[in-house]
């Protein structure tokens, strides 16, 4: 988990990091170590993938694709096992990384030297078999501004009409005070009665029209695919097998590049491994298609039909701490 450096609280941070590290150690590493040889893949999933990818682009920490070749083995081992110490010593590379990632510092997560070697081996092996991030980076000149459409456009239009009507009525009443005269109260009450029936009828019609079409009503439909999503600070993990706790990450096959068939109804079963997150699914036009919350201890089922082929984007839509805006992933519909 990234940390913001703060000189005034550094001793406390070290204590907290130690405690967190111990917790993670007993919660995660023990499980891996008990099986014998240290598995760099599992360690990476549990300790590093929150902030780093291997070929998937930068998060709150750098993309590690090819990074093991840019530094010496000794430097890497020390950086992985004692990042807090190296930052305190003002190691030039550590400080450069700190500035590059705007104060998000590498945290000491309690890895040993043997763990660090296993992680380095894993990153090297993945670098050899994985394409770099360039394939998924923004196009030159950036993305064009997406068009409005669907529910968003309709809601926007309704709001503008409503706000305009309110402004007109208030303006009209304001101007009316230039010619003061007594108001016929009985007539005003009659107008109010009509106004009440109009407003109530309108709301009833909208209620009737929209309550039939909520995400909950789709619970009885059949999903073509089920994808398990585990959200955690600041990462989404996908699997075709259930994930309900951090321990499951070591036992399930994590899907690195999620591809789904066009036209399929997909059920995303989302949970969280730490705090509340939001699973916000954006379509190829980068407009929000559907969302659900990812909560610790609960599984929310979001069904969505993915008709349009192309790149889909997932952003966290519930504030989850200072790396919130970095929490995103992608999936492809073919």
């Amino acid at each position: 988990m990234p940390t913001i450096l703060d000189a005034t609280s550094r001793p406390l941070r070290i204590i907290v990091s130690f405690v967190v590290g111990c917790g993670l150690f007993f919660g995660g590493v023990c499980g891996a170590s008990a099986q014998g040889a240290i598995d760099g893949r599992i360690l990476f999933q549990q300790k590093c993938s929150t902030c780093h990818t291997i070929g998937g682009g930068d998060r709150s920490g750098p993309d590690l694709w090819g990074s093991m070749e840019r530094h010496s083995q000794d430097w890497l081992i020390r950086w992985i096992t004692r990042p807090d110490l190296m930052i305190a010593e003002r190691d030039p590379i550590a400080i450069e990384l700190l500035e590059q990632f705007k104060g998000f510092a590498m945290e000491n997560v309690g890895l040993t030297e043997a763990d660090a070697r296993a992680v380095i081996d894993h990153v090297r092996a993945e670098t050899a078999t994985t394409a770099p991030a360039s394939a998924t980076q923004a196009p030159p000149g950036g993305y064009p501004t997406p068009p409005f459409g669907g529910v968003q456009l309709a809601a926007w239009a309704v709001f503008l009409i409503f706000a305009g009507a309110i402004a007109l009525v208030f303006g009209w009443v304001w101007l009316s005070t230039r010619n003061p005269q007594d108001v016929d109260v009985k007539r005003a009450y009659a107008v109010r009665r009509t106004f009440f029936f109009v407003v109530a009828s309108l709301l009833l019609v909208v209620l009737g029209a929209t309550l039939q079409d909520t995400p909950y009503a789709e619970a009885d439909t059949k999903a073509d695919r089920i994808v398990y999503v585990a959200a955690r600070q600041f990462d989404f993990v996908y699997s075709l097998e259930p994930i309900v706790s951090t321990g499951d990450l070591a036992n399930v096959l994590v899907v690195k590049r999620l591809e789904l068939p066009a036209g399929a109804t997909v059920e995303f079963r989302g949970t969280s491994l730490d705090v509340n997150h939001g699973f916000g699914l954006y379509g190829p036009t980068r407009q929000l298609l559907a969302q659900t919350q990812a909560m610790p201890g609960y599984v929310n089922r979001l069904r969505v039909r993915l008709d349009e082929p192309g790149q889909y984007y997932v952003f966290c839509l519930e504030y989850c701490a200072t790396g919130h805006h970095l929490m995103q992933s992608r999936l492809v519909v073919k």
């Binding site: 709001f159 929209t210 929000l288």
Partner: peptide, 28 residues
Amino acid sequence: FVGLAGWAIGGGGAGIDSTILVNMKFHN
């Protein structure tokens, strides 16, 4: 007076967002 207008306009925006169907696209 204009505070009442602001309350009304904001209430309209909130009312739109309180529709479950719309909230799916506007929440957060």
